[in-house]
């Protein structure tokens, strides 16, 4: 078992945090995970990507070369990080920010991630956790128990219930 995920968007959307949470959830499940990132020198804005590889075998090279999942939460990230997709790659976009999707043979899920974070949870800040809920439902690469625990380990005290709701909203988005 091996899965490669690329979570991309704009600096400040919390995608590196989302990548860390996913990798921590994989460790809680007893799997191995490597998380890496690339970003520009800007503190906010600029394209940002976090990559996570989860496997039950040793993972040496830390970068994604055959993405099973590409999450794009900005148009710029969609354009910049989709060059190496194969027919089996799954594209997940935030429909609020991504309108143009490159020609792709495989599955595409256009999900209202940030819209849902704003409307159901009151703040766009929760969009990375909503996205994690959707990715969980699509891949089942980690168990729900591990994912929830990893989320709650990382978020500020007092926001636990909202974050659980954010996960549930993301899960509900994918049929």
């Amino acid at each position: 078992m091996r899965i490669e995920l690329r979570l991309s968007g704009t600096g400040g959307q919390g995608l590196i945090t989302a990548g860390i949470i996913l990798a921590e959830a994989a460790l809680l499940d007893g799997k191995l995970a490597v998380q890496s990132q690339s970003y520009g020198p800007e503190a906010r804005g600029g394209s940002s990507k976090a990559e996570v590889i989860i496997s039950d075998q040793a993972i040496h090279f830390s970068k994604v070369t055959k993405p099973d999942i590409l999450l794009a939460m900005s148009q710029e990230a969609m354009n910049k990080y989709s060059g190496d997709l194969g027919p089996d790659s799954v594209i997940v976009t935030d429909s609020l920010f991504v309108s143009k999707i490159p020609a792709h043979e495989g599955k595409v899920y256009e999900l209202p991630i940030t819209h849902t974070a704003k409307n159901e949870l009151g703040r766009a800040l929760f969009s990375n956790i909503v996205a994690l809920g959707a990715l969980y439902k699509l891949t089942k690469v980690v168990s729900y128990e591990a994912l929830e625990k990893a989320v709650l380990n990382r978020v500020p005290k007092g926001t636990e219930e909202k974050n659980k709701k954010a996960l549930a909203a993301g899960i509900a988005m994918v049929d």
């Binding site: 995970a33 890496s36 990132q37």
Partner: peptide, 9 residues
Amino acid sequence: EVIGHMREK
């Protein structure tokens, strides 16, 4: 940078 910023177990 590869090793400094990479996260693993």
